[in-house]
Every structure is written in C-alpha cells, then in structure tokens.
Computed example of a mutant assay.
Amino acid sequence: MTAAGTDRQAPWDLSFLRVGTAVTAGLTAVAAPVAGLLAGSGAAVGVLLGAAVVASFFVLSGLVIAWAGRHGDAYTLPAALGSFVVKILLLAAVLQALPADGWVDRRALAWTVVAGALVWSVVQQRWVWTRRLYYVPPPDPPPPAGPPLPPGGGPTRG
C-alpha cells in the first residue's frame, strides 16, 4: 500500500524479449548459411525454422506470463507451466508432421531448438542478474530538499 492507500504494482519488464530476438537473429544469420554449406539446404531451412520456433515460443511465454502476472502473482506459475506444456505439444506436432526425408532436416531443426532454448535461457539469466528487481514495491522517491521555490520558478532579484 502506498501513502495514498492504493496498491502500486510494478510493471512487467519484457525487454529481454527484444534482446533474445536480436541474439537469435544474429546467431541464425551465421548458423543457417554454415548449416547449408555443411549439410545442404534442408539443414539451413531446419535452422531457420528452429530459430523461428524458439523465438516465437519464448516471446509467447513471456507475454502470457506477464499477462498473468498483471492479474495476480499467483497466476504466473500456472501460466508458465501451462504455456510450457502447450509449447512442447506444439513442437512434438511440428516434428511429427515433417516427413523424415522432406525438405526440412528434422535433426537440424531439433538441434537448433535445443541450442536456441539454451541461448534464450542465458539471455534471461543475464537479464535477471543485471536488473534491479524488487521483491517488494520500491519506496517513493524523497521530496526535493530545500525551501519551496516562489511561484515564478526561481529566486527573484530585487
């Protein structure tokens, strides 16, 4: 409760999504051509698809958890676990829907998903470790020091 008697809730900061997406895009820009040169165009497409899957899954989870957190802290864990289950089921469906000898290298896609999840985990950990996160709302800033200024905004000369 604040001095005015109203609840003050800290906004959910989703800036890690921008960083994670940028890191994913940079790594994908390097990994896709390398995979294409080493294992063919199917591997390059698998890397591109895998990176898109991981980025979209983490963005979706971040948005769902932030939405749940705005409605109540008790909803964040069920939202996180629920979105995780949905993502795993979707990934399994995507992998099963791709033919074994199709135009997408499923192994490259799967390894990209694993590597991408690890990269996003590191991005999130670094984001948490370098941010000032309060477990309670921070105190109000102190009032300005000194006597109040006159209505003109500054000292007057006589």
Rank of each mutant, 00 (worst) to 15 (best):
A68H: 07
V94A: 05
Y134Q: 02
V104P: 01
P33L: 13
G152F: 13
A10V: 13
Y75W: 15
V136G: 09
P11A: 14
V136L: 14
A10T: 07
S121Q: 10
V85A: 13
A74V: 06
L89H: 05
L37F: 12
F58Y: 07
L90N: 04
V86H: 04
R132V: 14
P151W: 15
V64H: 08
R131S: 14
Q124M: 15
W103V: 08
A66S: 11
G152L: 14
T130R: 15
R132A: 13
G153N: 08
T156W: 15
L14V: 09
A31T: 08
M1T: 07
G116K: 00
L95C: 05
D105S: 12
A32E: 02
A100Q: 10
Y75T: 12
W120V: 00
S61E: 10
K87V: 02
D140A: 12
L149V: 08
V86P: 02
H71E: 11
Q96N: 15
L95G: 03
V85T: 11
A32I: 02
F58K: 02
G50E: 03
P155N: 12
G20L: 04
L90S: 06
A35P: 01
A4C: 11
A145Y: 08
V19W: 08
T24C: 01
A55E: 01
A115C: 05
D105T: 07
A108M: 05
S83Q: 12
K87L: 04
F16G: 09
V34R: 06
P141S: 04
G42M: 03
T21R: 03
L98G: 01
P147F: 11
L38C: 11
L149N: 06
R107F: 13
V30Q: 07
H71P: 04
V59A: 11
D73C: 09
A31Y: 06
A74H: 09
T130M: 14
F57M: 07
G154V: 05
V128H: 14
A4L: 13
A51P: 00
T6A: 13
G154K: 10
G36Q: 02
P142V: 10
A51R: 00
P11N: 08
D105P: 07
L81P: 00
G62F: 03
R107C: 10
P138Q: 03
A80V: 09
Q96M: 15
W103G: 08
S15I: 07
A29W: 07
L95W: 05
L27Y: 00
Q124A: 15
